[in-house]
Design a protein around this nucleic acid. Sequence first.
DNA 1: CATGAATGAGACTTCATTCAT
DNA 2: CATGAATGAAGTCTCATTCAT
Lengths: 215, 215, 215, 215
Amino acid sequence: MDTTLQKAPTSPGKREQTKLQNRQLIVAAARRVFAELGYGATTVRDIIRATPLASGTFYNYFKSKEEVFQAVRDEVALAIRPRLHEERMKAATVEEFIGCSFRTFFEFVADDRVNFRTIRADSTRVRMDSPEVIAGFEELRNDLELAIAKGLFPSIDADFLMAAIVGVAFEVAERMLQTGSHDHVAAAEFATKLFIGGIRALPAVAEPGVISRNA
Amino acid sequence: MDTTLQKAPTSPGKREQTKLQNRQLIVAAARRVFAELGYGATTVRDIIRATPLASGTFYNYFKSKEEVFQAVRDEVALAIRPRLHEERMKAATVEEFIGCSFRTFFEFVADDRVNFRTIRADSTRVRMDSPEVIAGFEELRNDLELAIAKGLFPSIDADFLMAAIVGVAFEVAERMLQTGSHDHVAAAEFATKLFIGGIRALPAVAEPGVISRNA
Amino acid sequence: MDTTLQKAPTSPGKREQTKLQNRQLIVAAARRVFAELGYGATTVRDIIRATPLASGTFYNYFKSKEEVFQAVRDEVALAIRPRLHEERMKAATVEEFIGCSFRTFFEFVADDRVNFRTIRADSTRVRMDSPEVIAGFEELRNDLELAIAKGLFPSIDADFLMAAIVGVAFEVAERMLQTGSHDHVAAAEFATKLFIGGIRALPAVAEPGVISRNA
Amino acid sequence: MDTTLQKAPTSPGKREQTKLQNRQLIVAAARRVFAELGYGATTVRDIIRATPLASGTFYNYFKSKEEVFQAVRDEVALAIRPRLHEERMKAATVEEFIGCSFRTFFEFVADDRVNFRTIRADSTRVRMDSPEVIAGFEELRNDLELAIAKGLFPSIDADFLMAAIVGVAFEVAERMLQTGSHDHVAAAEFATKLFIGGIRALPAVAEPGVISRNA
DNA sequence: CATGAATGAGACTTCATTCAT
DNA sequence: CATGAATGAAGTCTCATTCAT
């Protein structure tokens, strides 16, 4: 095509503006593409293709795919972090502290799935949770439902409980390894107590009027 | 005289043995490499390089990187799933149900970090948890410690609590999106109640001698 | 699988027979596969897959794909050559000489398309006659039909005439290059005279009773 | 002062020029390599090696070997087709129709062997006309020379006649199979009459002074 | 000889990055 | 600065052939 004039700025002196605008164009495109394909599967070409810009232009703004990924993440994280922090600072009770955090976070996720996917970023075109792993999660859910049916547990949303157990398990395990302590007994005790206490508290919410009574 | 039958194998299954051994060689190498580089960043070449075998040999056993990854994951998942399920089935109380699960899981993680990393598999050569995201986690931990110091919270391991909150937040969010309900209010209520109840139950663990008593 | 006994000869002393039989198995499979995929696209694996034999066995009989291809071709060529030669030797007139050759050849082709394809062997999975080349052939046919309609030509099967012109053109050209003479004027004169004489003789056959009359 | 507009190209289309040139470079190299090795045996690597360009550059112009092959073929076919068609359209007699076609075609072949080879494209690194097949052709030529010596045939260039017979045989056979009629009797009759008439007409050419007399 | 897994050269192709325009 | 073609390293995968059993 004719490459001669098409990039003449719309009005003189707006170069700074154009620069910022181009950067935003790239970051926005990157966010969409990362959310869809995951970090590993997206290529710089995918990003610039989602942009009216040329491939070379990308490198005027970012050194690499990694760098733009950081930018996207930072942007997302920076969008929610201050709000969470502020609410926690204002909290006068445990209920407020915990409740505000979760409410804000889940609202954010529900509103903007794309950004959430970008933060997680562990999705790739390849299904990361293999059938066997997923089967393990489902098995846990079934076991929970069974336990509820048997009266072992109060009536709780098994889906969410399963997810919570899995989330705590993996994240606490990660933390355990990171801190270098490797005290798996302490980790297990922590998680166990958390859930036992939590489970006792839960049904009151799920089914108002029914007091948890598993004595 | 007759040379036709001389090919009766000297020992039963020398070749079968080699085959199995090679398959194990590949799976073991894959496990190591996936754990180190993450799924996205590891190449089939990386795997065979971690092996005394030739590149073509890989394809005698697996059609692709994806397939060997499944094999690794399945192996790991299958190693722990039956134990978890069995223990849950034998559980007579909530305490046993929850406690056994976590104890077994964390023990497994502590024993075999490589396998744990493989299950997670969300690590890549690129640091997925960008500084900003990590900063958000640390901020939460600081806020928790502050809250504990202010007497808002009982004295809990802030590291683990932070990890638990993050784990529940991301995993329940994921579940929320997957089930299609997108009911973020319910998700937030669930997580909030879980932690409020759990936090009340926790200090007894952190400080032995104090019996949990939240009646 | 169990490799121990399955290749025991059906009866002792038949080894020579088995050898010949295996060779035939391979040649027959090769003929089918070459005919279907063309030389370039077929692999040795394709051939042995069309056989109950193992890949290594192939190399007990042929050194390469090229060699088995030669064998197939030779077999086909040897099947028809003696018959053609014999008939030509017995011919007492030009009519017999030419007629017998063509009759035998076309009968062979019609009977055994697979073998014909193998002899040609210029077919590959890729369409060798590109649209443009085919379009050139069709254009010639159309021009011929037009010429017939205009009364320029007698009424002849335009399909066959087109094929004959194309066949002579390419084959004589090839010959011209091979002999090193490169006398394209002589080649053109030869082909032209051949067809002019031939075309005058043709209609009598196509439409019995109508004498060619293009004066 | 303003550096924004400095990228107005110093000369119109320096890059376009390079692009076209590179495309031609690739097509020209492809033509040479295809002519030498045949379609099946040439690889994209062979083509780019015959070029000062880098491997990846090939894929900026063509998606595959097949695509560049089409380009080469189309170019060749398009170069000769219009001329042939035009001459046929102007022909007022059979002699002109046939004669012009062959003269133009053989001239083209003699001038540009490389292009001819590309159109044929049935040559591969492997000799497609195996010894046996060639022997069959030579046998036919010998038989023809014998027949001429015996006075059965008039004195004709046996080389060209053999080539013409072979060309008609294979090409008409192909056409017979393609049209689906499989009427090998009609095919044989057609070819036979063509040659009988043609042979009677031929000597006039070979030996000037002798007027063809096939009344 | 039959077997079939191992081999490794090499084919095709993608893609992050550079650089002339 | 924008452009987009060129680059070439590196990845995935195939396949003819070898060789231990």
